[in-house]
């Protein structure tokens, strides 16, 4: 029954969130480091003053509750997470973690979502057409470079794009085709004002290279996946029957071939979301994009437990929401899904 299906998926969603938040609580703590103490020593070495470090560290740890038993910390952490209170960073005191994420998450989600969707739709479309118009071998040849690119990690490809568009011959003409860093032109506006077209334009312009490095790298995979599914679908009996029924080419292409090939692609998308997000984090660093990527790397370097927890939790949450949405769309596309398992 569909309602049973929905309940099952929502249950799965909460289980995923719970497991992710548990993992992100315990994993960083396995290192057994005392971040405050280390930081103080670091500062002390720089400043030469090395007294009372232990006392200060202990005081700070007490203030953050790190001196309590792990299970107590865990329980209060779960309570905070449930209220979407991500706590306060150990080293970025000026803002709460919620504020830090509010500033950065939008950029990351915008970049990830748009480029993942663009890659998915273009790649899937290319794969579908490639197989449907098989006699057109030019399409297959056009695919070769994308396949090559799909073997490269996002961030490496980002570096390649930077080299091509920024550090190379373009400079000789003093021609800045695409900006190499940032998310918007600071001279346009101090702070994001999305109603301002100039700001919007500069945001899109700045996002082009990071987005391109994600799109170009993932395009080939989607195309090959879709092509493979189309090969299978074309061999299905209902495809022959569709032709025998005298259905026009476009109807057979969209309503028969694509419709049936799309299902595994969507599963693939649901599975890939997490990977895309983690890839984007590195792309952001390459392009100094103000998303969560830079924040996450910095927090990991500092062993900033609350911030790591906050960022990873939010990313896991977004991934789980996307997966849940895809799960909800799936039965609409394949009527067999909601009934399976009953």
């Amino acid at each position: 029954m569909p309602s049973k299906y929905i309940v099952g998926r929502v249950g799965m969603f909460f289980l995923t969130i719970f497991l992710a938040s548990t993992l992100v609580f315990f994993l960083p703590r396995l290192s057994g480091r005392d971040p405050f103490r280390e930081k103080l020593f670091e500062e002390a070495q720089r400043g030469g003053y090395l007294e009372d470090v232990d006392e200060i560290a202990a005081a700070l740890n007490e203030r953050y509750g790190f001196d309590r038993p792990l299970w107590q910390q865990y329980v209060s952490y779960l309570g905070e997470i449930a209220r979407f209170d991500l706590g306060t960073s150990q080293f970025t005191f000026s803002k709460s973690n919620n504020q830090l994420l509010a500033e950065t998450l939008g950029w990351t989600i915008g970049l990830t979502f748009i480029s993942a969707m663009v890659a998915f739709f273009i790649g899937t479309g290319m794969g579908a057409i490639m197989e449907w118009r098989r006699q057109n071998t030019g399409l297959l040849a056009a695919m070769a470079p994308f396949l090559m690119m799909s073997a490269v990690p996002y961030f490496i490809f980002g570096l390649v794009l930077l080299t091509v568009f920024w550090f190379s011959w373009l400079q000789a003409f003093d021609w800045e085709l695409f900006p190499p860093y940032g998310a918007y032109d600071p001279t346009v506006e101090e702070w994001p004002d999305w109603s301002d077209f100039r700001f919007l334009g500069s945001a899109v312009w700045h996002a082009t290279l990071p987005a391109l490095s994600i799109v170009l790298v993932s395009l080939g995979g989607w195309a090959m996946g879709m092509r493979g599914m189309m090969v299978t679908t074309k061999g299905e009996d209902y495809m022959l029957q569709a032709e025998a029924k005298g259905l026009p080419d476009n109807v057979r292409f969209y309503r028969y071939a694509i419709r049936n090939s799309l299902l595994p692609q969507l599963t693939g998308l649901a599975l890939q979301i997490g990977l895309i997000v983690s890839g984007v984090v590195l792309v952001e660093i390459v392009f100094t994009y103000p998303g969560v990527g830079g924040l996450l790397v910095q927090s990991i370097r500092n062993s900033d437990y609350p911030l790591i927890q906050g960022i990873v939790f939010v990313l896991a949450f977004c991934t789980a929401v996307t997966t849940l949405l895809l799960d909800m769309i799936y039965p609409l596309i394949d009527p067999r899904i909601s009934y399976s398992g009953n």
Partner: peptide, 18 residues
């Protein structure tokens, strides 16, 4: 279909599953 129609093999999945 209009003039000549095909009845497929009985073992075939000749209907679009979706």
């Amino acid at each position: 279909l209009r003039d000549i129609a095909l009845v497929p093999q009985g073992a075939m999945n000749s209907l679009n599953p979706v």
